[in-house]
Amino acid sequence: MRAIGHIAVNVFRESVRDKVLYSIVAFAVMLIAVSYLLAQLTAGQDLKIIKDLGLASIATFGLLMAIFIGIGLVWKEVERRSIYGLLTKPIRRWEFILGKYVGLVLTLLVNVAVMTAAFYAVLAYQGWGVDELARRAWPAPPMDPALLSAIALILVELMLVTGIALFFSTFSGPFLSAVLTLGLWVIGHFNTDLRNFENVVESRAAAWLARGLYYALPNFDTFDIKAQVVQGQHVAASYIALSVLYGMVYPALVLTGAVAIFSRRDFK
């Protein structure tokens, strides 16, 4: 287990020394800040615009980081042959995979925290000096703690994306891994439609196939509570807990697959 920690710290160190990552985070923070200006152009929707744009920025740039770092995690080590030096140290292959995963999750955690801090700073500025009457018109307060639950679920979603990217990275190149991960992410957002497929088709086989795919493919929609939170609607704690549980179990299965493939792999 100690090896996993050391490998994870090294992944984190690689990320913080990567200028591309800084650019992504800087761009995200800038976009969150710009949301304040956009909010000024709307009448009565200012806070909603900031929250929508802020949460969307965190989700989108987090996704970019998870995919573009995740797809290179294993591939880069194999392609550049740095894996020869590492795997001959007293570590097991599954520790290597888990270390890489934990390292990227740690990186995402820190970056999401930075974006969240920028988001709350903009919200605090927006709410500063606003009179009580205007406040009452808002569906939720600017510094609404419920936003944190939406951000937490974004982070759990990113953990799942990371697991999938890492899985593909164990046997394919970065381009294919990026396409497959992004493809699954898009499909995963329409997963609920697969469940309802049986209501619109006659064929029993097609209905079963759709039902099978619904369970097999990741359901990313389950992590999206942004709209409810922005509108000030209550999201049940049990729903959040179940989503988090799903976001733990699915990556665990994906990582098990990644370890199974990686453990049998020849590094020519």
Binding site: R13, E14, R17, D18, R81, T88, I91
Partner: peptide, 16 residues
């Protein structure tokens, strides 16, 4: 692995 050392051919390590 605890008791051995290995130098790969044309070694490459983490350049950062």
């Amino acid at each position: 692995k605890r008791r051995i050392g290995y130098l790969p051919e044309n070694p490459y390590f983490y350049d950062y």
